[in-house]
Design a protein around this nucleic acid. Structure first.
Length: 305
DNA sequence: AATCCAACCAACCGCCAGTAG
DNA sequence: CCTACTGGCGGTTGGTTGGAT
C-alpha cells in the first residue's frame, strides 16, 4: 500500500519548510481554518501534501505552541505519564498544554539514550535523574523498574497496582480549598488514611491535613480521574460518576462533593482512593497540568516497592 | 582551522481506525 | 458490505548544530 493520494501529486515539495511557506500556511489557516487538510495546500498556494501541512501546523506553527526547555514540572509529568501509558506520546502530550507529541517523543528518546549510555551510573552521580525522581521514590533503580516494567507490559491500571503491591492514594496540599469540616472530603480523607496508616499518618505529617482534589473545580478536561475502591480495585468506568475522555468528550463534566458522597453511599463504598490516570501515581494540586507552575506535588508511595 | 562525532529535532513513513459514498 | 480517503499516531530518518579533538 502505501502512499496517501495527496502526496502523489507532482511537484510536491519535501524537507524543511521555508519562512515563505510558513507564512502562506499561517495566513491560510488563520483566515480559513482547517476543515480538510487535503484541500489546504492548493488553497493556500503550497506545493506540499496536506499531511505535511497538518504536521507543520500542529507541531510548529499553531499559535498555542510552547517552546523551549521542558520545565522540571513537565519532566516529572512526562516521566510519570510514561510510566503509566508507555509510548502513547499523543496521550502524554494532551496533558502538557502547548507541547507536541513529537517534541515529547524526541525528548524522551534523548533521555533514554543518555540513560542507556550510562547503564551502571549510580544514583549519586546521576543528578539529572535524581532531580527528576518523583517524591517518595528512594532510588533511581526503583523509578527505572517501574518505567521499564510498564514499557514491556501493556500498561493497565491493574498491572500498575499489582506492580506497586499496595494501593496508592493521592491528595494535594492546597490549603485554599480545604476548609476543614465544610465538606465530605474530610470524611473521605479519614477513611483513606485508615486504609494504610503506615503510608500516611496525619499525626506524622509536617504538612497540613491533605485534601482530595477538588473535583468541583476540575472542569479542565486534562484531568481524568478514575476511581479505585479501598482494596485497590478499579471501579468500572461505567460506574463512575465522572468520566472525561481524552478528546474532552464527557459523560459528566464534573461532579461536586455532595454528588461524590451520594455516589459513594449508593455504591456502599466506605472508603475511596483516587487514582489519577493523568498524573499516574503523582498527586497534584488544583488542576494538575504542568504549566500551572504549582509545585506542591505530593505523592505517597509505599516505602518498599 | 579543519574534521569528527554525538545529540537534537523537524519531517517523513507506514500503519491503523473511522467514515463517507 | 466494500472501497477510497482522511486524520492521527508512533517509529524512524536524515539534516543541522555544536562541542571535542
Amino acid at each position: 500500500m502505501g502512499h496517501h493520494s495527496c502526496c502523489n501529486q507532482q511537484k510536491v515539495k519535501r524537507g524543511l519548510w521555508s519562512p515563505e511557506e510558513d507564512e502562506k500556511l499561517i495566513r491560510y489557516i488563520t483566515t480559513h481554518g482547517y476543515g480538510c487538510w487535503s484541500e489546504v495546500p492548493e488553497k493556500a498556494g503550497l506545493q506540499r501534501c496536506g499531511k505535511s501541512c497538518r504536521l507543520r501546523w500542529i507541531n510548529y506553527l499553531r499559535p498555542d505552541i510552547r517552546r523551549g526547555r521542558f520545565t522540571p514540572e513537565e519532566e516529572k509529568l512526562i516521566i510519570s505519564l510514561h510510566s503509566i501509558v508507555g509510548n502513547r506520546w499523543a496521550h502524554i502530550a494532551s496533558h502538557l498544554p502547548g507541547r507536541t507529541d513529537n517534541e515529547i517523543k524526541n525528548y524522551w528518546n534523548s533521555w533514554i539514550k543518555k540513560k542507556i549510555r550510562k547503564p551502571t551510573t549510580p544514583p549519586s552521580t546521576s543528578p539529572s535523574s535524581v532531580e527528576l525522581m518523583q517524591p517518595g521514590f528512594n532510588s533511581v533503580d526503583q523509578l527505572d523498574a517501574i518505567i521499564n516494567q510498564n514499557l514491556s507490559t501493556k500498561p493497565t491500571p491493574d498491572n500498575i497496582f499489582s506492580s506497586m503491591h499496595c494501593p496508592i492514594f493521592m491528595f494535594d496540599t492546597s490549603a485554599g480549598d480545604s476548609r476543614p469540616g465544610s465538606s465530605a472530603r474530610d470524611e473521605i480523607i479519614q477513611d483513606v488514611a485508615t486504609l494504610n496508616s503506615d503510608m500516611w499518618n496525619p499525626q506524622n505529617q509536617d504538612q497540613a491535613l491533605p485534601t482530595l482534589l477538588d473535583f468541583s473545580s476540575s472542569m479542565d478536561t486534562t484531568y481524568l480521574p478514575s476511581l479505585v475502591d479501598g482494596m485497590g480495585n478499579m471501579v468500572p468506568m461505567e460506574a463512575q460518576p465522572c468520566c472525561v475522555g481524552d478528546d474532552g468528550a464527557t459523560s459528566r463534566e464534573c461532579f461536586d462533593k455532595q454528588e461524590l458522597n451520594e455516589w459513594m453511599d449508593s455504591q456502599q463504598y466506605s472508603s475511596l482512593l483516587i487514582w489519577d490516570q493523568v498524573q499516574g501515581t503523582l498527586g497534584g494540586e488544583g488542576l494538575p497540568t504542568a504549566t500551572t507552575g504549582t509545585d506542591s506535588m505530593v505523592t505517597s508511595f509505599p516505602s518498599s516497592l
